[in-house]
Write a protein that binds this DNA or RNA. Structure first.
Length: 596
DNA sequence: AGGCAGTACTG
DNA sequence: CAGTAC
DNA sequence: GCCT
């Protein structure tokens, strides 16, 4: 007998999305039957629904007290023909549960509604269709969460009036990063030296640059497009633009026509060539100037750690325009994904570049602590620092112990180091919880939840990872900043500032920084160093080489047919791939593809 | 037309 | 599995 | 988006 045999479900507002799709399959695999709702425009959902059908509500619409929230938004996501479905559910008082509770049944191998809490949808309105426009009539207001409904409506108008504070963060700056590197002394003289680089996943070099050459007129609009596609989640297209930009930068001659560019420069195809010609003719691209309202919104949200393109798009499509707005309408977004709260709190600090000269101080602190714990352990800076960039987006630390391949030892060590440094107020936050971390840091998380009033009557237990192979942290030096980074950042909107923990007293503290602890087995030191040194573009290029040779390369080693070829010796890996070994400083730039 | 780097964690 | 991050 |  299957778990859900004979039981009928309906998912609201829809079953789109990955997790829901996953749960859907899970339910069906276990014998449950799902009524198609939005997928089915014929309204057959209504025809087959009955009073024993169980309603699975998307978690976004359920608060911590198991009350339905944001019914008006639920409604917005339901297509018109499903309004009657919803009304049927309410009129017949169908049992509603939070869809994520499905996993509870699965875990317990038992389908028993007593295991979960039913969601209360009482006290909400009934909807009518008027000329295709949906209206909401509040029938009664009692019960625990009705006040929040009203608040929502108020806050909505309030937030709509809110202006977009920042527009387009056009950071004109220049990038020259490779070749020379060691200069810790900023080359202030020439404009600036911001390098956006790799904190952004697939932007290999900064896209906000202004090249010295006369080709920057072309590059800037293309970079804008790259960012646009990136926040929209079209990573491959965004990457194409970035690769094209890199290639243009390498091209020393002036570009005089789109045709010429396509013919002479790799990574430029018909589409970009056409755009280049357009830029040459008119100085800009159509649709770049105006259509940026959506871009601003997507960028605003996805600049926050933990918010990606999909979440940003969802929030944007719900007409939310600040985190506070999201909070008031969908508090669960933050309760479930609490790390976002810290992304929000350090929104501005975490965008600020770390001057190269300061990085060593951060390393020293960790090193000292590590020595006390286990003098045999090693830690080294990887990432953009290792590649010699004058400014780093974050600090990547690789821990290992000569001769030690024991993952448990390695995991426990970084966990312990991070905890000790938390007690010393160097580590300000964790973005992941284990049992031990929760002991020292749990209250801090609860404080943040309380700050947004999500803890009121809820103890809240967190998911704890059994162990961590990497620690994602926020850290802060207790000393004044020595050098102010000059990269532009997206500012937090006034509405959202109440959550900010970003540094306001630069005479006392440095900014809060993102620091990552990684571990590697001693036997995998070489491949790990390659991996964590990056850049990500360089890794991709290298791994492509491996593919071409019928091999596979990861941070754990170079493989052929699942057999390990090499993982310890860095140079050996280059050799096996038939790539000339280059120092990290030269891995900022992709060894370009061949000319066409 | 299909690939585009590969791994880890979470809901 | 999809989303996010590394 | 571009490349093969």
């Amino acid at each position: 007998m299957l778990l859900f045999q004979g039981q009928q479900f309906v998912i609201l507002p829809n079953s789109e999305g990955s997790y829901l799709g996953y749960l859907t399959r899970l339910i069906e695999k276990n014998g449950g039957h799902l009524i198609s709702s939005v997928e089915d425009e014929t309204g057959s959902g209504l025809a087959t629904i009955d009073s024993s059908t169980i309603v699975l509500l998307n978690s976004s619409f359920v608060d911590e007290n198991f009350n339905l929230i944001q019914e008006n938004f639920l409604l917005r996501e339901l297509r018109p023909f499903n309004i009657s479905l919803w009304n049927f559910i309410k009129e017949n008082n169908l049992k509603c549960i939070d869809i994520k509770d499905i996993s509870i049944f699965i875990k317990n191998k038992k389908f028993d509604l007593n295991l979960v809490q039913l969601v209360n949808i009482e006290g909400h309105s009934v909807f009518k269709l008027n000329d295709g426009v949906t209206t909401v009539q509040t029938i009664k207001s009692e019960g625990t969460n009705n006040s929040s409904d009203e608040k929502i409506l108020e806050s909505k108008s309030e937030s709509e009036s809110e202006s977009e504070s920042e527009s387009e963060s056009e950071s004109e700056s220049e990038s020259e990063s490779e070749s020379e590197s060691e200069s810790e002394s900023e080359s202030e003289s020439e404009s600036e030296s911001e390098s956006e680089s790799e904190s952004e996943t697939d932007i290999e070099i900064d896209v906000n640059r202004k090249t010295k050459g006369n080709n920057d007129r072309i590059v800037n609009p293309l970079a804008k497009l790259a960012r646009k596609y990136k926040v929209e989640g079209d990573t491959f297209r965004a990457r194409s633009y970035n690769l094209a930009i890199l290639s243009i930068d390498k091209y020393t001659l002036p570009i005089t026509s789109g045709i010429q560019a396509q013919k002479e420069i790799p990574n430029i195809g018909p589409s970009i060539a056409k755009k280049i010609q357009r830029i040459l003719d008119t100085g800009t691209l159509p649709g770049l100037e105006q259509a940026s309202e959506q871009f601003d919104s997507l960028q605003y949200f996805s600049t926050c750690h933990g918010v990606g393109s999909e979440t940003a798009k969802r929030w944007n499509s719900l007409k939310l325009d600040s985190f506070k707005d999201v909070l008031e309408k969908f508090p669960n977004e933050f309760a479930v994904e609490w790390p976002i709260l810290f992304g929000w709190s350090y929104y501005e600090d975490w965008q600020k570049k770390i001057p190269r000269s300061v990085c060593a101080k951060y390393l020293q602190i960790v090193e000292d602590e590590l020595f006390l714990l286990d003098p045999d352990f090693k830690v080294e800076l990887q990432g953009s620092f290792n590649r010699g960039l004058p400014e780093c987006g974050d600090l990547d630390l690789l821990f290992y112990k000569p001769g030690c391949d024991d993952l448990n030892v390695l995991c426990r060590t970084i966990e312990e180091i991070a905890i000790r440094l938390y007690k010393k107020s160097f580590v300000k936050c964790f973005l992941q919880l284990t049992e031990q971390i929760e002991k020292v840091f749990g209250n801090q998380v609860r404080e943040r939840l309380a700050k947004i009033r999500l803890t009121e009557n809820k103890p809240k237990k967190f998911n704890l990872a059994p162990r961590i192979k990497k620690a994602l942290l926020g850290v802060q030096l207790q000393e004044p900043i020595s050098i102010e980074p000059h990269n532009e950042i997206v500012e937090l909107k006034d509405n959202d500032k109440f959550m900010s923990l970003s540094n306001e007293d630069t005479s006392k503290y440095d900014y809060c920084r993102r620091m990552d602890f990684f571990i590697c087995k001693w036997s995998e030191l070489g491949s790990s160093r390659i991996h964590f040194t990056g850049s990500s573009e360089y890794n991709r290029w290298m791994r492509l080489k491996a593919i071409e040779k019928g091999m596979k390369m990861t941070q754990h080693g170079l493989f052929k047919d699942d057999r390990l070829l090499e993982s310890f010796n860095e140079k050996k890996i280059f050799e096996l791939l038939d790539i000339e070994y280059v120092e990290p400083q030269l891995r900022n730039q992709v060894n370009k593809r061949q000319k066409k």
